[in-house]
Design a protein around this nucleic acid. Structure first.
Length: 598
DNA sequence: CTAGGGTTAG
Protein backbone atom coordinates (compact mmCIF):
# COMPACT_ATOMS: atom_id res chain seq x y z
CA UNK A 1 0.00 0.00 0.00
CA UNK A 2 2.76 2.33 0.96
CA UNK A 3 4.54 1.80 -2.34
CA UNK A 4 1.43 2.74 -4.30
CA UNK A 5 1.31 6.04 -2.51
CA UNK A 6 4.97 6.65 -3.14
CA UNK A 7 4.59 5.96 -6.83
CA UNK A 8 1.79 8.47 -6.98
CA UNK A 9 4.14 11.06 -5.61
CA UNK A 10 7.05 10.44 -7.88
CA UNK A 11 4.90 10.46 -10.98
CA UNK A 12 3.83 13.95 -10.10
CA UNK A 13 7.40 14.90 -9.41
CA UNK A 14 8.68 13.63 -12.75
CA UNK A 15 6.03 15.32 -14.79
CA UNK A 16 6.95 18.88 -13.96
CA UNK A 17 9.98 20.58 -15.44
CA UNK A 18 10.17 23.02 -12.59
CA UNK A 19 13.04 21.30 -10.87
CA UNK A 20 15.74 23.07 -12.80
CA UNK A 21 14.06 26.38 -12.23
CA UNK A 22 13.76 25.92 -8.52
CA UNK A 23 17.09 24.51 -7.57
CA UNK A 24 19.91 26.99 -7.58
CA UNK A 25 23.47 25.84 -8.11
CA UNK A 26 25.37 25.21 -4.91
CA UNK A 27 27.99 27.76 -4.00
CA UNK A 28 30.86 25.54 -4.97
CA UNK A 29 32.47 28.28 -7.00
CA UNK A 30 34.14 29.57 -3.84
CA UNK A 31 36.69 26.79 -3.97
CA UNK A 32 39.84 28.08 -5.62
CA UNK A 33 41.80 26.12 -8.17
CA UNK A 34 45.38 26.08 -6.90
CA UNK A 35 46.84 29.35 -8.14
CA UNK A 36 50.55 29.78 -7.52
CA UNK A 37 51.50 31.38 -4.21
CA UNK A 38 52.48 34.59 -5.95
CA UNK A 39 49.22 34.79 -7.87
CA UNK A 40 47.41 34.10 -4.70
CA UNK A 41 49.33 36.81 -2.96
CA UNK A 42 48.66 39.31 -5.70
CA UNK A 43 44.95 38.70 -5.95
CA UNK A 44 44.79 38.68 -2.23
CA UNK A 45 46.39 42.10 -1.98
CA UNK A 46 44.10 43.45 -4.64
CA UNK A 47 41.00 42.19 -2.92
CA UNK A 48 41.97 43.60 0.45
CA UNK A 49 39.78 46.46 1.48
CA UNK A 50 41.31 47.11 4.85
CA UNK A 51 43.38 50.26 5.14
CA UNK A 52 46.37 48.55 6.72
CA UNK A 53 46.00 45.28 4.92
CA UNK A 54 48.53 46.06 2.24
CA UNK A 55 50.98 47.42 4.78
CA UNK A 56 50.73 44.27 6.84
CA UNK A 57 51.04 42.02 3.85
CA UNK A 58 53.91 44.04 2.41
CA UNK A 59 55.93 43.82 5.60
CA UNK A 60 54.99 40.18 5.88
CA UNK A 61 56.24 39.52 2.38
CA UNK A 62 59.42 41.39 3.15
CA UNK A 63 59.95 39.32 6.30
CA UNK A 64 59.40 36.13 4.36
CA UNK A 65 62.25 36.92 1.97
CA UNK A 66 64.83 38.01 4.51
CA UNK A 67 67.89 35.83 5.10
CA UNK A 68 68.27 34.75 7.81
CA UNK A 69 64.55 34.92 8.51
CA UNK A 70 63.35 37.03 11.45
CA UNK A 71 62.51 35.15 14.68
CA UNK A 72 59.17 33.38 14.85
CA UNK A 73 58.03 35.85 17.52
CA UNK A 74 58.05 38.61 14.90
CA UNK A 75 55.80 36.57 12.67
CA UNK A 76 53.56 35.80 15.62
CA UNK A 77 53.16 39.48 16.38
CA UNK A 78 52.12 40.20 12.84
CA UNK A 79 49.71 37.28 12.66
CA UNK A 80 48.18 38.24 15.99
CA UNK A 81 47.68 41.80 14.80
CA UNK A 82 45.86 40.56 11.71
CA UNK A 83 43.79 38.14 13.81
CA UNK A 84 42.78 41.00 16.07
CA UNK A 85 41.18 42.75 13.12
CA UNK A 86 39.21 39.53 12.58
CA UNK A 87 40.70 38.94 9.16
CA UNK A 88 41.20 35.27 9.86
CA UNK A 89 41.30 34.41 6.19
CA UNK A 90 44.45 36.53 5.94
CA UNK A 91 46.02 34.77 8.93
CA UNK A 92 45.58 31.42 7.22
CA UNK A 93 46.95 32.78 3.98
CA UNK A 94 50.04 34.14 5.74
CA UNK A 95 50.57 30.93 7.66
CA UNK A 96 50.52 28.93 4.43
CA UNK A 97 53.18 31.19 2.90
CA UNK A 98 55.34 30.69 6.00
CA UNK A 99 55.13 26.94 5.65
CA UNK A 100 56.13 27.20 2.01
CA UNK A 101 59.43 28.84 2.90
CA UNK A 102 60.10 26.42 5.76
CA UNK A 103 59.58 28.80 8.65
CA UNK A 104 58.75 26.62 11.65
CA UNK A 105 55.77 27.76 13.68
CA UNK A 106 55.80 27.55 17.44
CA UNK A 107 52.87 26.90 19.77
CA UNK A 108 51.73 30.53 19.60
CA UNK A 109 51.70 30.54 15.80
CA UNK A 110 49.70 27.34 15.81
CA UNK A 111 47.28 28.69 18.39
CA UNK A 112 46.62 31.79 16.31
CA UNK A 113 46.04 29.57 13.29
CA UNK A 114 43.79 27.25 15.28
CA UNK A 115 41.75 30.16 16.56
CA UNK A 116 41.41 31.55 13.04
CA UNK A 117 39.95 28.30 11.75
CA UNK A 118 37.59 28.10 14.72
CA UNK A 119 36.44 31.68 14.22
CA UNK A 120 35.75 30.92 10.57
CA UNK A 121 33.37 28.15 11.60
CA UNK A 122 35.85 25.47 10.62
CA UNK A 123 36.34 23.73 13.92
CA UNK A 124 37.28 20.49 12.14
CA UNK A 125 40.29 22.25 10.66
CA UNK A 126 40.94 23.60 14.14
CA UNK A 127 41.20 20.04 15.39
CA UNK A 128 43.58 19.18 12.58
CA UNK A 129 45.80 22.03 13.79
CA UNK A 130 45.61 20.40 17.21
CA UNK A 131 47.00 17.28 15.57
CA UNK A 132 49.69 19.44 14.01
CA UNK A 133 50.60 20.80 17.45
CA UNK A 134 51.27 17.27 18.69
CA UNK A 135 53.16 16.39 15.52
CA UNK A 136 55.48 19.37 15.90
CA UNK A 137 56.34 18.18 19.38
CA UNK A 138 54.39 20.89 21.19
CA UNK A 139 51.63 20.40 23.71
CA UNK A 140 48.28 22.10 23.37
CA UNK A 141 47.66 24.58 26.16
CA UNK A 142 44.64 26.33 27.61
CA UNK A 143 44.69 28.81 24.70
CA UNK A 144 44.30 25.97 22.20
CA UNK A 145 41.45 24.42 24.11
CA UNK A 146 39.62 27.69 24.73
CA UNK A 147 39.65 28.33 20.98
CA UNK A 148 38.37 24.84 20.24
CA UNK A 149 35.57 25.16 22.79
CA UNK A 150 34.63 28.47 21.20
CA UNK A 151 34.75 26.89 17.74
CA UNK A 152 32.46 24.07 18.78
CA UNK A 153 29.98 26.57 20.18
CA UNK A 154 30.12 28.65 17.00
CA UNK A 155 29.14 25.54 15.04
CA UNK A 156 26.33 24.83 17.46
CA UNK A 157 27.99 21.68 18.78
CA UNK A 158 26.96 22.54 22.30
CA UNK A 159 27.37 19.20 24.00
CA UNK A 160 30.75 18.65 22.31
CA UNK A 161 31.89 22.02 23.60
CA UNK A 162 30.81 21.27 27.16
CA UNK A 163 32.28 17.77 26.82
CA UNK A 164 35.64 19.19 25.78
CA UNK A 165 35.59 21.57 28.72
CA UNK A 166 34.97 18.70 31.13
CA UNK A 167 37.61 16.61 29.44
CA UNK A 168 40.37 19.15 29.80
CA UNK A 169 39.47 19.55 33.47
CA UNK A 170 39.81 15.80 33.84
CA UNK A 171 43.15 16.00 32.12
CA UNK A 172 44.25 18.45 34.78
CA UNK A 173 44.23 21.69 32.79
CA UNK A 174 43.55 24.85 34.72
CA UNK A 175 40.86 26.82 32.86
CA UNK A 176 41.44 30.54 32.65
CA UNK A 177 38.79 33.16 33.26
CA UNK A 178 38.51 33.40 29.50
CA UNK A 179 37.88 29.69 29.13
CA UNK A 180 35.11 30.10 31.65
CA UNK A 181 33.81 33.18 29.84
CA UNK A 182 33.79 31.24 26.55
CA UNK A 183 31.76 28.49 28.18
CA UNK A 184 29.27 30.95 29.67
CA UNK A 185 28.96 32.86 26.41
CA UNK A 186 28.47 29.71 24.35
CA UNK A 187 25.77 28.43 26.62
CA UNK A 188 23.97 31.78 26.75
CA UNK A 189 24.11 32.25 22.98
CA UNK A 190 22.69 28.79 22.35
CA UNK A 191 19.73 29.35 24.63
CA UNK A 192 21.16 27.47 27.57
CA UNK A 193 21.44 30.36 29.98
CA UNK A 194 20.00 28.21 32.75
CA UNK A 195 22.83 25.70 32.34
CA UNK A 196 25.29 28.59 32.41
CA UNK A 197 23.69 29.82 35.61
CA UNK A 198 23.95 26.39 37.18
CA UNK A 199 27.66 26.27 36.36
CA UNK A 200 28.06 29.75 37.75
CA UNK A 201 26.39 28.72 40.98
CA UNK A 202 28.47 25.57 41.23
CA UNK A 203 31.59 27.63 40.70
CA UNK A 204 30.67 29.84 43.61
CA UNK A 205 30.08 26.80 45.75
CA UNK A 206 33.20 25.85 47.71
CA UNK A 207 32.47 22.13 47.44
CA UNK A 208 31.58 22.35 43.80
CA UNK A 209 34.03 23.37 41.13
CA UNK A 210 37.10 23.85 43.28
CA UNK A 211 39.37 23.86 40.23
CA UNK A 212 38.35 27.39 39.45
CA UNK A 213 40.99 29.71 40.77
CA UNK A 214 39.21 32.90 39.84
CA UNK A 215 36.05 34.76 40.59
CA UNK A 216 33.60 35.58 37.82
CA UNK A 217 34.36 39.02 36.46
CA UNK A 218 32.36 41.81 34.88
CA UNK A 219 32.23 40.05 31.51
CA UNK A 220 30.98 36.78 32.99
CA UNK A 221 28.27 38.58 34.91
CA UNK A 222 27.07 40.76 32.08
CA UNK A 223 26.99 37.82 29.68
CA UNK A 224 24.97 35.77 32.13
CA UNK A 225 22.57 38.57 33.00
CA UNK A 226 22.01 39.28 29.37
CA UNK A 227 21.50 35.63 28.51
CA UNK A 228 19.09 34.97 31.35
CA UNK A 229 17.00 38.05 30.66
CA UNK A 230 16.84 37.19 26.96
CA UNK A 231 15.30 33.84 27.86
CA UNK A 232 12.84 35.50 30.18
CA UNK A 233 14.46 34.65 33.52
CA UNK A 234 14.34 38.23 34.67
CA UNK A 235 14.32 37.39 38.37
CA UNK A 236 17.49 35.34 38.00
CA UNK A 237 19.01 38.21 36.07
CA UNK A 238 18.14 40.67 38.83
CA UNK A 239 19.50 38.27 41.42
CA UNK A 240 22.83 38.08 39.61
CA UNK A 241 22.81 41.82 39.16
CA UNK A 242 22.65 42.17 42.97
CA UNK A 243 25.23 39.45 43.45
CA UNK A 244 27.72 41.21 41.24
CA UNK A 245 27.19 44.49 43.06
CA UNK A 246 27.74 42.71 46.40
CA UNK A 247 30.98 41.19 45.19
CA UNK A 248 32.20 44.64 44.33
CA UNK A 249 31.78 44.63 40.57
CA UNK A 250 30.14 47.75 39.21
CA UNK A 251 27.51 46.85 36.59
CA UNK A 252 28.25 48.39 33.24
CA UNK A 253 26.18 49.40 30.28
CA UNK A 254 25.80 45.82 29.13
CA UNK A 255 24.57 44.49 32.45
CA UNK A 256 22.06 47.33 32.71
CA UNK A 257 21.16 46.97 29.08
CA UNK A 258 20.48 43.25 29.45
CA UNK A 259 18.22 43.81 32.40
CA UNK A 260 16.35 46.67 30.74
CA UNK A 261 15.99 44.61 27.57
CA UNK A 262 14.49 41.68 29.48
CA UNK A 263 12.11 43.87 31.43
CA UNK A 264 10.92 45.56 28.25
CA UNK A 265 10.33 42.23 26.54
CA UNK A 266 7.89 41.19 29.24
CA UNK A 267 6.28 44.61 29.22
CA UNK A 268 7.50 45.63 32.67
CA UNK A 269 8.04 49.21 31.56
CA UNK A 270 8.01 50.66 35.06
CA UNK A 271 10.92 48.59 36.34
CA UNK A 272 12.78 49.06 33.07
CA UNK A 273 12.42 52.80 33.55
CA UNK A 274 13.76 52.54 37.10
CA UNK A 275 16.88 50.72 36.00
CA UNK A 276 17.30 53.20 33.20
CA UNK A 277 17.26 56.04 35.71
CA UNK A 278 19.60 54.16 38.05
CA UNK A 279 21.99 53.62 35.19
CA UNK A 280 22.05 57.31 34.32
CA UNK A 281 22.50 58.16 38.00
CA UNK A 282 25.49 55.84 38.09
CA UNK A 283 27.04 57.94 35.39
CA UNK A 284 26.56 55.33 32.69
CA UNK A 285 25.52 56.98 29.49
CA UNK A 286 22.89 55.00 27.62
CA UNK A 287 24.13 54.65 24.10
CA UNK A 288 22.32 54.35 20.82
CA UNK A 289 21.96 50.60 21.26
CA UNK A 290 20.16 50.89 24.59
CA UNK A 291 17.81 53.44 23.08
CA UNK A 292 17.23 51.15 20.12
CA UNK A 293 16.42 48.22 22.40
CA UNK A 294 13.89 50.34 24.28
CA UNK A 295 12.34 51.66 21.12
CA UNK A 296 12.17 48.22 19.61
CA UNK A 297 10.33 46.84 22.63
CA UNK A 298 7.93 49.79 22.62
CA UNK A 299 7.23 49.39 18.92
CA UNK A 300 6.59 45.68 19.26
CA UNK A 301 4.07 46.49 21.98
CA UNK A 302 2.25 48.93 19.72
CA UNK A 303 3.62 51.98 21.52
CA UNK A 304 5.08 53.71 18.50
CA UNK A 305 4.30 57.17 19.78
CA UNK A 306 6.24 56.56 22.97
CA UNK A 307 9.07 55.19 20.89
CA UNK A 308 9.23 58.35 18.86
CA UNK A 309 9.22 60.26 22.14
CA UNK A 310 12.36 58.35 23.05
CA UNK A 311 13.85 59.31 19.72
CA UNK A 312 13.50 62.93 20.74
CA UNK A 313 15.05 62.24 24.14
CA UNK A 314 17.88 60.45 22.46
CA UNK A 315 18.62 63.35 20.15
CA UNK A 316 18.31 65.74 23.10
CA UNK A 317 20.90 63.74 25.01
CA UNK A 318 23.23 63.90 22.08
CA UNK A 319 23.03 60.27 21.03
CA UNK A 320 23.02 59.99 17.29
CA UNK A 321 20.16 57.84 15.96
CA UNK A 322 21.56 55.23 13.61
CA UNK A 323 20.12 53.17 10.79
CA UNK A 324 18.63 50.75 13.31
CA UNK A 325 16.77 53.51 15.10
CA UNK A 326 14.87 54.59 12.03
CA UNK A 327 14.21 51.10 10.79
CA UNK A 328 12.82 50.10 14.20
CA UNK A 329 10.53 53.11 14.11
CA UNK A 330 9.48 52.35 10.56
CA UNK A 331 8.63 48.82 11.52
CA UNK A 332 6.58 50.09 14.45
CA UNK A 333 4.58 52.28 12.11
CA UNK A 334 4.06 49.38 9.72
CA UNK A 335 2.90 47.16 12.56
CA UNK A 336 0.25 49.74 13.42
CA UNK A 337 -0.76 49.76 9.76
CA UNK A 338 0.45 53.32 9.50
CA UNK A 339 2.13 52.57 6.21
CA UNK A 340 1.79 56.16 4.99
CA UNK A 341 3.57 57.45 8.09
CA UNK A 342 6.28 54.88 7.55
CA UNK A 343 6.59 56.06 3.98
CA UNK A 344 6.82 59.63 5.15
CA UNK A 345 9.68 58.74 7.49
CA UNK A 346 11.35 56.89 4.64
CA UNK A 347 11.02 59.85 2.29
CA UNK A 348 12.06 62.25 5.03
CA UNK A 349 15.27 60.35 5.58
CA UNK A 350 15.94 60.41 1.88
CA UNK A 351 15.36 64.14 1.75
CA UNK A 352 17.56 64.74 4.81
CA UNK A 353 20.34 62.89 3.08
CA UNK A 354 20.29 60.26 5.81
CA UNK A 355 21.87 57.20 4.35
CA UNK A 356 19.24 54.61 3.54
CA UNK A 357 20.00 50.94 3.51
CA UNK A 358 18.46 47.72 2.36
CA UNK A 359 16.72 47.17 5.68
CA UNK A 360 14.63 50.33 5.20
CA UNK A 361 13.44 49.03 1.87
CA UNK A 362 12.74 45.62 3.34
CA UNK A 363 10.73 47.11 6.16
CA UNK A 364 8.67 49.30 3.92
CA UNK A 365 8.11 46.54 1.37
CA UNK A 366 6.93 44.37 4.25
CA UNK A 367 4.62 47.16 5.35
CA UNK A 368 3.08 47.40 1.91
CA UNK A 369 2.75 43.63 1.64
CA UNK A 370 1.07 43.41 5.04
CA UNK A 371 -1.70 45.75 3.93
CA UNK A 372 -1.88 44.03 0.55
CA UNK A 373 -0.58 46.97 -1.46
CA UNK A 374 1.48 44.78 -3.73
CA UNK A 375 1.77 47.29 -6.55
CA UNK A 376 3.42 49.75 -4.15
CA UNK A 377 5.69 47.01 -2.85
CA UNK A 378 6.69 46.11 -6.39
CA UNK A 379 7.39 49.74 -7.29
CA UNK A 380 9.63 50.00 -4.24
CA UNK A 381 11.37 46.79 -5.19
CA UNK A 382 12.15 48.20 -8.62
CA UNK A 383 13.19 51.51 -7.09
CA UNK A 384 15.69 49.88 -4.77
CA UNK A 385 17.28 48.07 -7.67
CA UNK A 386 17.31 51.26 -9.68
CA UNK A 387 19.10 52.98 -6.79
CA UNK A 388 21.68 50.18 -6.74
CA UNK A 389 20.63 48.49 -3.51
CA UNK A 390 21.04 44.76 -3.72
CA UNK A 391 17.84 42.96 -2.70
CA UNK A 392 18.48 40.39 0.03
CA UNK A 393 16.93 37.08 0.91
CA UNK A 394 14.61 39.02 3.23
CA UNK A 395 13.45 41.25 0.37
CA UNK A 396 12.55 38.23 -1.73
CA UNK A 397 10.93 36.27 1.07
CA UNK A 398 8.88 39.29 2.07
CA UNK A 399 7.73 39.92 -1.48
CA UNK A 400 6.92 36.26 -2.06
CA UNK A 401 4.77 36.06 1.07
CA UNK A 402 2.90 39.19 -0.03
CA UNK A 403 2.39 37.97 -3.59
CA UNK A 404 1.09 34.56 -2.56
CA UNK A 405 -1.21 36.16 -0.03
CA UNK A 406 -3.03 38.09 -2.72
CA UNK A 407 -2.94 35.16 -5.12
CA UNK A 408 -0.40 36.56 -7.58
CA UNK A 409 1.18 33.17 -8.17
CA UNK A 410 2.54 33.94 -11.61
CA UNK A 411 4.31 37.08 -10.39
CA UNK A 412 5.70 35.08 -7.47
CA UNK A 413 7.11 32.47 -9.85
CA UNK A 414 8.76 35.22 -11.87
CA UNK A 415 10.23 36.84 -8.78
CA UNK A 416 11.59 33.55 -7.56
CA UNK A 417 13.31 33.03 -10.89
CA UNK A 418 14.82 36.50 -10.53
CA UNK A 419 16.60 35.50 -7.32
CA UNK A 420 19.20 33.75 -9.44
CA UNK A 421 19.80 36.93 -11.39
CA UNK A 422 20.48 38.85 -8.20
CA UNK A 423 22.64 36.03 -6.84
CA UNK A 424 20.43 35.50 -3.83
CA UNK A 425 20.28 31.86 -2.76
CA UNK A 426 16.87 30.74 -1.53
CA UNK A 427 16.89 29.50 2.05
CA UNK A 428 14.61 27.05 3.78
CA UNK A 429 12.20 29.88 4.55
CA UNK A 430 11.94 30.67 0.85
CA UNK A 431 10.97 27.09 0.11
CA UNK A 432 8.48 27.05 2.96
CA UNK A 433 6.91 30.19 1.54
CA UNK A 434 6.77 28.68 -1.95
CA UNK A 435 5.31 25.39 -0.74
CA UNK A 436 2.78 27.13 1.44
CA UNK A 437 1.96 29.57 -1.34
CA UNK A 438 1.44 26.86 -3.95
CA UNK A 439 -0.73 24.81 -1.61
CA UNK A 440 -2.85 27.78 -0.56
CA UNK A 441 -3.32 28.87 -4.16
CA UNK A 442 -4.42 25.46 -5.38
CA UNK A 443 -1.23 24.64 -7.19
CA UNK A 444 -1.08 21.23 -5.61
CA UNK A 445 0.98 19.50 -8.30
CA UNK A 446 3.51 22.29 -8.32
CA UNK A 447 3.87 22.17 -4.56
CA UNK A 448 4.39 18.43 -4.52
CA UNK A 449 6.78 18.66 -7.42
CA UNK A 450 8.84 21.27 -5.61
CA UNK A 451 8.81 19.24 -2.43
CA UNK A 452 10.02 16.11 -4.17
CA UNK A 453 12.65 18.00 -6.08
CA UNK A 454 13.99 19.43 -2.84
CA UNK A 455 14.07 16.03 -1.18
CA UNK A 456 15.79 14.46 -4.18
CA UNK A 457 18.43 17.16 -4.27
CA UNK A 458 19.29 16.46 -0.68
CA UNK A 459 18.23 19.91 0.45
CA UNK A 460 18.04 19.75 4.22
CA UNK A 461 14.38 20.15 5.01
CA UNK A 462 13.33 20.92 8.56
CA UNK A 463 10.21 20.00 10.47
CA UNK A 464 8.61 23.32 9.55
CA UNK A 465 8.84 22.45 5.87
CA UNK A 466 7.33 19.02 6.44
CA UNK A 467 4.58 20.52 8.58
CA UNK A 468 3.82 22.94 5.79
CA UNK A 469 3.60 20.10 3.26
CA UNK A 470 1.49 17.98 5.59
CA UNK A 471 -0.87 20.90 6.08
CA UNK A 472 -1.16 21.41 2.34
CA UNK A 473 -1.83 17.72 1.74
CA UNK A 474 -4.42 17.50 4.50
CA UNK A 475 -6.22 20.63 3.35
CA UNK A 476 -6.27 19.23 -0.20
CA UNK A 477 -7.90 16.09 1.13
CA UNK A 478 -4.83 13.91 0.56
CA UNK A 479 -4.79 12.44 4.03
CA UNK A 480 -3.29 9.16 2.79
CA UNK A 481 -0.27 10.94 1.34
CA UNK A 482 0.02 13.01 4.49
CA UNK A 483 -0.08 9.96 6.76
CA UNK A 484 2.57 8.21 4.72
CA UNK A 485 4.79 11.26 4.87
CA UNK A 486 4.15 11.73 8.57
CA UNK A 487 5.27 8.18 9.25
CA UNK A 488 8.49 8.79 7.33
CA UNK A 489 9.46 11.72 9.54
CA UNK A 490 11.20 9.71 12.24
CA UNK A 491 13.50 7.91 9.78
CA UNK A 492 14.62 11.34 8.62
CA UNK A 493 15.55 12.12 12.18
CA UNK A 494 12.81 14.72 12.50
CA UNK A 495 10.64 15.13 15.56
CA UNK A 496 7.08 16.33 14.97
CA UNK A 497 6.19 19.49 16.89
CA UNK A 498 2.81 20.38 18.36
CA UNK A 499 2.11 22.20 15.09
CA UNK A 500 2.80 19.00 13.11
CA UNK A 501 0.51 16.95 15.31
CA UNK A 502 -2.18 19.62 15.18
CA UNK A 503 -2.09 19.52 11.40
CA UNK A 504 -2.46 15.75 11.36
CA UNK A 505 -5.18 15.73 14.01
CA UNK A 506 -7.04 18.39 12.10
CA UNK A 507 -6.74 16.41 8.89
CA UNK A 508 -8.00 13.23 10.50
CA UNK A 509 -10.86 15.03 12.28
CA UNK A 510 -12.05 16.32 8.93
CA UNK A 511 -12.63 12.75 7.77
CA UNK A 512 -14.69 12.12 10.89
CA UNK A 513 -12.48 9.28 12.11
CA UNK A 514 -12.40 10.54 15.65
CA UNK A 515 -10.91 7.39 17.08
CA UNK A 516 -7.87 7.78 14.82
CA UNK A 517 -7.63 11.44 15.69
CA UNK A 518 -7.70 10.64 19.35
CA UNK A 519 -5.01 8.00 18.86
CA UNK A 520 -2.83 10.60 17.24
CA UNK A 521 -3.42 12.80 20.27
CA UNK A 522 -2.41 9.94 22.58
CA UNK A 523 0.71 9.31 20.53
CA UNK A 524 1.59 12.96 20.82
CA UNK A 525 1.30 12.79 24.60
CA UNK A 526 3.23 9.54 24.73
CA UNK A 527 6.09 11.03 22.70
CA UNK A 528 6.31 13.87 25.18
CA UNK A 529 5.00 16.56 22.86
CA UNK A 530 2.75 18.84 24.87
CA UNK A 531 -0.64 19.48 23.25
CA UNK A 532 -1.63 23.15 23.13
CA UNK A 533 -4.86 25.08 22.90
CA UNK A 534 -5.07 24.44 19.15
CA UNK A 535 -4.86 20.68 19.73
CA UNK A 536 -7.75 20.75 22.16
CA UNK A 537 -9.72 23.16 20.05
CA UNK A 538 -9.41 20.84 17.04
CA UNK A 539 -10.36 17.71 18.96
CA UNK A 540 -13.24 19.44 20.75
CA UNK A 541 -14.75 20.49 17.43
CA UNK A 542 -14.35 16.97 16.12
CA UNK A 543 -16.01 15.35 19.08
CA UNK A 544 -18.70 18.00 19.10
CA UNK A 545 -19.58 17.16 15.49
CA UNK A 546 -20.36 13.60 16.50
CA UNK A 547 -21.96 14.60 19.77
CA UNK A 548 -19.46 12.72 21.89
CA UNK A 549 -19.97 14.53 25.21
CA UNK A 550 -18.00 12.09 27.39
CA UNK A 551 -14.89 12.57 25.24
CA UNK A 552 -15.30 16.33 25.42
CA UNK A 553 -15.49 16.25 29.17
CA UNK A 554 -12.46 13.97 29.16
CA UNK A 555 -10.57 16.56 27.13
CA UNK A 556 -11.56 19.27 29.56
CA UNK A 557 -9.93 17.23 32.30
CA UNK A 558 -6.78 16.87 30.22
CA UNK A 559 -6.78 20.62 29.72
CA UNK A 560 -7.16 21.23 33.44
CA UNK A 561 -4.23 18.88 34.08
CA UNK A 562 -2.09 20.93 31.74
CA UNK A 563 -3.32 24.25 33.03
CA UNK A 564 -4.66 25.21 29.64
CA UNK A 565 -7.67 27.49 29.87
CA UNK A 566 -10.46 26.82 27.37
CA UNK A 567 -10.94 29.76 25.04
CA UNK A 568 -14.19 31.28 23.85
CA UNK A 569 -14.67 28.84 21.00
CA UNK A 570 -14.29 25.83 23.27
CA UNK A 571 -16.64 27.29 25.83
CA UNK A 572 -19.27 27.84 23.18
CA UNK A 573 -18.87 24.23 22.01
CA UNK A 574 -19.43 23.01 25.56
CA UNK A 575 -22.55 25.12 25.88
CA UNK A 576 -23.64 23.81 22.52
CA UNK A 577 -23.29 20.18 23.51
CA UNK A 578 -24.90 20.70 26.89
CA UNK A 579 -27.96 22.21 25.30
CA UNK A 580 -28.25 19.23 22.93
CA UNK A 581 -27.56 16.52 25.45
CA UNK A 582 -30.38 15.28 27.66
CA UNK A 583 -27.89 14.07 30.26
CA UNK A 584 -26.37 17.45 30.54
CA UNK A 585 -26.60 17.77 34.29
CA UNK A 586 -24.64 14.54 34.62
CA UNK A 587 -21.75 16.02 32.61
CA UNK A 588 -22.03 19.40 34.17
CA UNK A 589 -20.95 18.00 37.52
CA UNK A 590 -17.97 16.32 35.88
CA UNK A 591 -16.56 19.43 34.23
CA UNK A 592 -13.33 20.38 35.95
CA UNK A 593 -12.89 23.73 37.61
CA UNK A 594 -10.43 26.02 35.89
CA UNK A 595 -8.71 28.54 38.03
CA UNK A 596 -8.87 31.89 36.33
CA UNK A 597 -5.23 32.65 37.09
CA UNK A 598 -2.61 30.85 34.99
C1' DC B 1 47.20 33.85 20.93
C1' DT B 2 41.60 32.62 23.74
C1' DA B 3 35.42 35.45 26.57
C1' DG B 4 30.32 40.51 26.83
C1' DG B 5 24.93 43.97 24.04
C1' DG B 6 20.60 45.88 19.30
C1' DT B 7 16.98 45.50 13.72
C1' DT B 8 14.45 42.77 8.96
C1' DA B 9 9.75 37.31 6.75
C1' DG B 10 6.96 32.72 9.19
Amino acid sequence: MASAVTTGFSRTAQRGKLSSMFIHPSKSKHITQDPTPLENFKTHCESCTRINANDELTSFYYMLQRQPPPPISSFNQLLAAVAKTKNYQDVIFMYQRMVEVDISPNIITLNVLLNSYCSLKRVALGFSVLGGIFKSGYSPDIFSFTSLINGLFIEDKISDAVGLFNKIIQMGFQPSIRTWGTLIKGLCKSGNAVVALRLHEEAGNKNGRSYLRFKPNLICYSTLIHGLCKEGFIDKGKQLFLEMKVSGIKPNLIAYGGLIHGLCEVGNWEEARQFFIEMVDQGIRPNTIVFNVLMHALCKDGKTNEASGLLNLMILRGEEPDSFTYSILMNGLCLENRIDDARELFDFMGAKGHKRNVVYYNRLINGYCKCHKLEEAMILFKQMIHEDYKPTIITFNTMLIGLFQVGKVEVARGLFAKMKVYEVTPDSTTYNILLDGFFKNNCLAEAIDLFYTLERCGFVLDIETYSCVLDGLCKAGKLDFATELFERLSCKGLVPTAVTYNIMIHGICKTGKMEEAYNMFLEMEKKGCAPDLVTFDTLMKGFCNCNDSPKMVGLLHKMAERNILPDASIVSLIIDILSKDTNCSEYLSEIPKFSTKG
